[in-house]
């Protein structure tokens, strides 16, 4: 049983316990949909890969993640976010492709399996370029698959056709690790930035007392209309913060 399958099982358990709900909300999925999708990925892996000529793809390892990606792309719509997702995908693919050449060819020279390293790097790149949880997911899935496609096309052009295995074997580990890492980073880093933003915004110098008034010490009073960055700041956390409204 591969590392990625263990991770997948652990994620399903965590979701069943109600964790990670926030991430799923941002992906426009509720926890039950997510569990069903993850279970579908796990079950899809038991189904042998579908082979069409030189291309083979796994139902659980490629088709289902691709389906989610298409759904997310439709949700994104034609916007600047879409451009960011496309550029992120291309760069993620380019970096993984380059990494295959930079890393040592023999597995004994690496601490961990190359497919896991690709997954970690792809996850990081997808987060940096995608930024949002949705984009990170899209960049991870499409970026990893595109890097395989590039090598496939290069080999075809050199007259040495190789097989393209999407979401099969090591590619599945890469894909799952890339998805989980990028989405998790987007979530946790995003939350950290949000917290930093709230602290920065809701803190003012009081010239009368020569101290800082903040939401934390309960001395800062805001008018609702003054919260200009309401979209950026998590409204839920603001509502729970200890401050009062001015009439």
């Amino acid at each position: 049983m591969s590392v990625s399958l263990w991770i997948l099982s652990a994620i399903i358990i965590l979701l069943m316990l109600g964790l990670g709900q926030r991430i799923l909300d941002q992906l426009r999925l509720n926890d039950k949909q997510a569990i069903i999708l993850l279970l579908a990925i796990a079950i899809g892996l038991i189904i042998p890969p579908i082979e069409i000529g030189l291309v083979s793809f796994s139902v659980g390892g490629f088709l289902i993640p691709l389906g989610i990606t298409i759904y997310l792309l439709i949700m994104v719509g034609f916007s600047r976010d879409l451009l960011r997702a496309i550029i992120g995908t291309i760069l993620t693919a380019g970096i993984i492709y380059g990494l295959e050449w930079v890393m040592p060819a023999d597995p004994e020279e690496l601490l961990i399996s190359p497919s896991i390293i690709y997954g970690l790097v792809a996850g990081l790149v997808a987060y940096i370029l995608g930024r949002s949880r949705r984009n990170a997911f899209i960049c991870a899935v499409l970026g990893v698959s595109l890097s395989q496609l590039i090598q496939f096309i290069v080999n075809l052009s050199l007259g040495t056709p190789t097989k393209l295995g999407l979401g099969v074997g090591g590619a599945f580990s890469t894909l799952i690790i890339a998805i989980l890492l990028s989405v998790a980073l987007a979530e946790f880093m995003g939350r950290a930035f949000e917290n930093a933003t709230i602290n920065k915004e809701i803190k003012k110098f009081n010239f009368e007392t020569s101290t800082y008034d903040s939401v934390k010490n309960g001395r800062l009073r805001y008018k609702t209309s003054e919260i200009k960055t309401a979209d950026a700041i998590n409204m839920h956390e603001i509502k729970n913060a200890n401050f009062t409204k001015n009439d």
Binding site: P48, P49, E51, S56, L99, E100, W101, M103, P104, A105, P107, L110, P114, S115, Y118, Q151, N155, T160, P161, T162, K163, G165, V168, G169, G170, A171, T174
Partner: peptide
């Protein structure tokens, strides 16, 4: 005789597809 070129760090990732297919089929 499926090819897994080039001889770089991705070769084993590519050959895993062949090895899995041999086992599955």
């Amino acid at each position: 005789e499926d090819l897994h070129l080039p001889h770089n760090s991705g070769a084993y990732t590519r050959s895993e597809v062949t090895a899995s297919a041999l086992i599955n089929n």
